[in-house]
Computed example of a mutant assay.
Amino acid sequence: MVGALIVALLTAFFTVTPAHAADGQITGLAGKCVDVAASNSANGTPVQLYECNGTNAQRWSSPGDGTLRALGKCLDVASGGTADGTAVQLWDCNGSAAQQWALPSARDIVNPQADKCLDVTGNNSANGTRLQIWTCSGGPNQKWNAPGAGDSGGGSTPSGFVVSEAQFNQMFPGRNSFYTYNGLVQALSSYPAFANSGSDTVKRQEAAAFLANVNHETGGLVYVVEQNTANYPHYCDWSQQYGCPAGQAAYYGRGPIQLSWNFNYKAAGDALGIDLLNNPWLVQNDPAVAWRTGLWFWNTSTGAGTMTSHNAMVNQAGFGQTVRTINGSLECDGRNPGQVQSRVDAYQRFTSILGVSPGANLYC
């Protein structure tokens, strides 16, 4: 009785977000999908990570009772286990606590009975990697985009982001396949105020501003790492007490805003709960981590300016102030007007795609 009461209270505490909007896919590490192995509906069939393919084995729904269902059966913790490493599987829906799932705002998928998160075993993004439950750590292998019914209102997309996947692809037709839309959507949970503050116009303007600057920094989402390898050894500041444990030349520019320097990897990693100081390569190997570092800078750094880029857009200081924050010391006040124009052109193009005016104060 006490156990049932605890489960009921935990289930009530979390807001269950059913995964039944749009195509019903639940995406996670490396933009891959929660998948029923071999589309087999037999009891005990493993649930795994797999390349998204639009099949019914990846189409999840919920009737609003806390379950997640595919192929007519429920996502189930094997034998009702609560230990780290207990596998999840497909099983006849039976109303048990082993089949209850809750989705807090952090985009964990939690089994309240175990108080543990749906987890990709070994942080391995290979097709066929078994899913399990594990103590919630906030790692990328426990972050999921499970579209919910409430996400489709207010002009947003099924992911809750104001930019749809089709619009994203239109913005970046020649992008590197590393920069996935699903990776970006997963990263949004780290900074929920991003493109989600103010009016719909402001939300879209902020999304366009971020992506326009990213476009400039990466050559249209083409470059994952800094191209000038001669610069690599320069980004280690040995005066920092923690030094450069990954190596003198390990902290070169990576990701959508080209994170560089050991102290920036340390600060971003601390903020995101990821050890980027010792493993900076995560930024070039995990799309969601890469996008999170870009959002970290956008939402927390004043850079060469006087405000964060997020605040510049939300408070309507204008796109020009985001340029100042990101690279103002090299580009603004007439230092490199061609570079500024490149950013403004992209911003105007992206706001047009999103159907919103670019606003005032475009230049710095």
Rank of each mutant, 00 (worst) to 15 (best):
3 G>P: 12
6 I>P: 01
8 A>I: 04
10 L>V: 09
14 F>V: 13
14 F>D: 13
16 V>E: 14
17 T>C: 14
25 Q>P: 10
29 L>M: 05
29 L>K: 06
30 A>P: 07
31 G>A: 09
33 C>E: 06
36 V>E: 00
37 A>C: 02
38 A>N: 12
39 S>W: 01
41 S>R: 09
45 T>D: 00
48 Q>G: 06
54 G>Q: 02
56 N>V: 00
60 W>I: 00
67 T>S: 14
68 L>Y: 15
71 L>T: 03
74 C>H: 03
77 V>T: 12
81 G>T: 11
89 Q>Y: 03
91 W>Q: 13
96 S>R: 10
103 L>S: 08
105 S>H: 14
112 P>V: 11
113 Q>I: 02
113 Q>P: 09
115 D>Q: 08
118 L>H: 12
119 D>S: 07
124 N>P: 05
127 N>V: 10
128 G>A: 10
129 T>N: 12
132 Q>K: 05
134 W>T: 00
135 T>M: 00
140 P>G: 00
143 K>D: 03
144 W>K: 08
145 N>T: 12
145 N>W: 09
152 S>C: 07
153 G>A: 04
155 G>R: 11
159 S>V: 06
160 G>P: 04
163 V>F: 11
166 A>P: 15
169 N>Y: 10
171 M>T: 09
174 G>E: 10
178 F>Y: 07
184 L>N: 10
186 Q>F: 08
201 T>P: 09
203 K>Q: 09
204 R>Q: 01
213 N>V: 11
216 H>A: 08
218 T>G: 06
218 T>C: 07
219 G>A: 04
219 G>N: 06
227 Q>A: 13
229 T>R: 06
231 N>P: 00
233 P>F: 06
233 P>Y: 06
233 P>H: 06
238 W>K: 14
238 W>S: 15
240 Q>N: 13
240 Q>Y: 13
253 G>H: 00
266 K>M: 01
268 A>P: 01
269 G>M: 01
269 G>V: 00
278 N>D: 11
280 P>C: 06
280 P>N: 08
282 L>Q: 13
283 V>L: 07
286 D>S: 11
286 D>A: 04
292 R>Q: 15
296 W>E: 10
299 N>Q: 14
301 S>R: 14
302 T>L: 11
304 A>M: 05
307 M>T: 14
307 M>S: 15
309 S>F: 04
310 H>E: 02
311 N>T: 04
314 V>N: 01
315 N>R: 13
316 Q>I: 05
319 F>V: 07
321 Q>P: 00
327 N>I: 00
338 G>D: 15
342 S>E: 08
345 D>F: 02
346 A>R: 09
351 T>I: 03
353 I>L: 04
355 G>E: 10
355 G>N: 05
356 V>M: 04
359 G>F: 07
360 A>L: 10
